[in-house]
């Protein structure tokens, strides 16, 4: 069996790539996908710890994270559609007023 560090380092790399994407991209949908990637990196950490500690609780947490990600996808994409209707753009630089 592989050492736990392999999974944790891979998860850290994926999380950092997601962070870089969130900080550098300007397309709101791509930023959203990077957030999903960060959530998945955390899921990998939880499943790896759950396996190596012999405790199922980590995998139950992964379920709740998946639920939150699904809710976030529904609400976030609805927000983007509403924003696109107003501004004809999903560039985050254009999101600079609260009310139109």
């Amino acid at each position: 069996m592989l050492a736990l560090e392999n999974y944790l380092v891979l998860s850290a790399i994926l999380f950092s790539i997601g962070t870089i994407g969130v900080l550098t991209r300007r397309n709101a949908i791509v930023i959203f996908m990077c957030v999903e990637m960060m959530l998945n990196a955390v899921n990998l950490t939880l499943v790896a710890f759950s396996r190596y500690l012999g405790n199922i609780d980590g995998q139950v947490f992964v379920f709740f994270i998946m639920t939150v990600a699904a809710a976030e996808a529904a609400v976030g994409l609805a927000l983007m559609i509403a924003f696109y209707k107003n501004r004809e753009s999903i560039d985050v630089e254009d999101i600079n007023v609260m009310k139109l």
């Binding site: 850290a12 950092s16 962070t19 870089i20 900080l23």
Partner: peptide, 14 residues
């Protein structure tokens, strides 16, 4: 700047 922050946090975590 974004890449620097991300890479720095990665090395710190590792």
């Amino acid at each position: 700047a974004g890449s620097a922050i991300g890479i720095f946090s990665m090395f710190l975590t590792v």
